[in-house]
C-alpha cells in the first residue's frame, strides 16, 4: 500500500470502520512510513480537538432542563396511571354490579323455568289468588250443589258433580258458585267455596288432561298430591271414581283440604 492509497482511508481508519484486512495494511504502511504516520496522528488530533470543543461544550442548562423534564415526565406518567386506575373504580362501581345483575337474572330465569310454568299446582294456585283478590268472579253464583253441577256438566264432556260438604270441626264450608276456567289452556270446572271468610277453590279436570301438566305426570301414580307455596296456599289433588281429578286450593290446613277433596272423590 502506498501513501496515496493509505490516505484515502484516513477517515475510515480513524473511525475504526475498516475491515480487518485493510486495517492491517494501513497499520503496516504507517509503521514503515514516517510521513503518513505523522499525518494520521495530526489528523486524529485535529479531529479530537474539534470534537472535544463540542463534547466538552459546557451545558450548564442541561442539569436544570433535565430536572424539569424528568419531574414533569414522572408526574405525567403518574397522572396517566391514575387515569388508568380510575377506570378500575368505574369497573367496580358499574361493570361488576351490572355483570352480577345479569348473572342474577339468568339464575332467576333458570329457577323460574325450573319452577315449571306448566305445573298444575302453580296454575291452580294462581287462579285461586285471582279469586281471593276478587279478580275473577263465578259466572254462576249459587249455594246449591245441584245447580252448579248442572251448569258445569253442560259445558264439559266429563261429569262434574258438585257435592254438599258437611262441616268439619265446626268449620262451615259454603258453596259460592262455579265457572269454566282455563289452566294452561286446559278447560277445567272451577267450583268456588267459602270457609271461615277464606276462599276455597276446587278444580275438576278430566283425567286425560292431567297428563298435560308436568307436575302431575310425576304424581299420577300416587293417589294424593300435596303442594304448599310460599304464601301458605296449599294444593291437594286426588283422583275420583268418575275418571276425573279434583284439586283443592285454599289457605287452610291440609286436613280441611283433604276433607273437601275426599267429599268429591267419594262420589
Amino acid at each position: 500500500m502506498n501513501c496515496r492509497e493509505a490516505r484515502q482511508y484516513i477517515n475510515l481508519f480513524l473511525d475504526s470502520e475498516l475491515d480487518s484486512k485493510t486495517n492491517l495494511e494501513i497499520s503496516e504502511h504507517l509503521s514503515s512510513c514516517e510521513e503518513c504516520n505523522t499525518r494520521f496522528a495530526q489528523e486524529e488530533r485535529l479531529e479530537k480537538s474539534l470534537v472535544s470543543v463540542l463534547k466538552e461544550d459546557k451545558v450548564p442548562k442541561a442539569e436544570v432542563t433535565w430536572e424539569g423534564v424528568i419531574s414533569r415526565f414522572s408526574h405525567q406518567v403518574e397522572w396517566e396511571e391514575e387515569k388508568h386506575l380510575s377506570f378500575r373504580p368505574f369497573l367496580w362501581r358499574y361493570l361488576v354490579p351490572a355483570t352480577a345483575t345479569v348473572i342474577g337474572l339468568v339464575i332467576m330465569l333458570i329457577m323460574y323455568s325450573r319452577q315449571d310454568t306448566n305445573a298444575l299446582a302453580a296454575a291452580a294456585q294462581k287462579c285461586h289468588i285471582e279469586y281471593m283478590t276478587d279478580k275473577i268472579a263465578p259466572s254462576l253464583e249459587s249455594m246449591f250443589p245441584d245447580e252448579v253441577s248442572g251448569y258445569l256438566s253442560d259445558k264439559f264432556t266429563f261429569p262434574v258433580t258438585v257435592s254438599e260438604i258437611s262441616d268439619i270441626k265446626f268449620h262451615h264450608i259454603k258453596l259460592f258458585g262455579g265457572k269454566v276456567c282455563h289452566l294452561n289452556g286446559v278447560s277445567v270446572a272451577y267450583v268456588m267455596y267459602h270457609c271461615c271468610n277464606a276462599p276455597v277453590s276446587v278444580f275438576i279436570l278430566n283425567a286425560k288432561d292431567v297428563e298435560n301438566f308436568s307436575d302431575m305426570k310425576r304424581y299420577i301414580a300416587g293417589d294424593r298430591i300435596l303442594f304448599k307455596n310460599q304464601n301458605g296456599i296449599t294444593f291437594v289433588a286426588v283422583p275420583t271414581k268418575q275418571n276425573t281429578f279434583v284439586c283443592v286450593v285454599a289457605d287452610h290446613d291440609v286436613e280441611l283440604l283433604r276433607w273437601v277433596a275426599d267429599n268429591f272423590a267419594k262420589i
Binding site: 499525518r39 480537538s49 472535544s52
Partner: peptide, 9 residues
C-alpha cells in the same frame, strides 16, 4: 493547523 491545532482551538 495540523501541526499545532491547540493554538487555533
Amino acid at each position: 493547523i495540523l501541526k499545532d491545532p491547540l493554538k487555533l482551538m
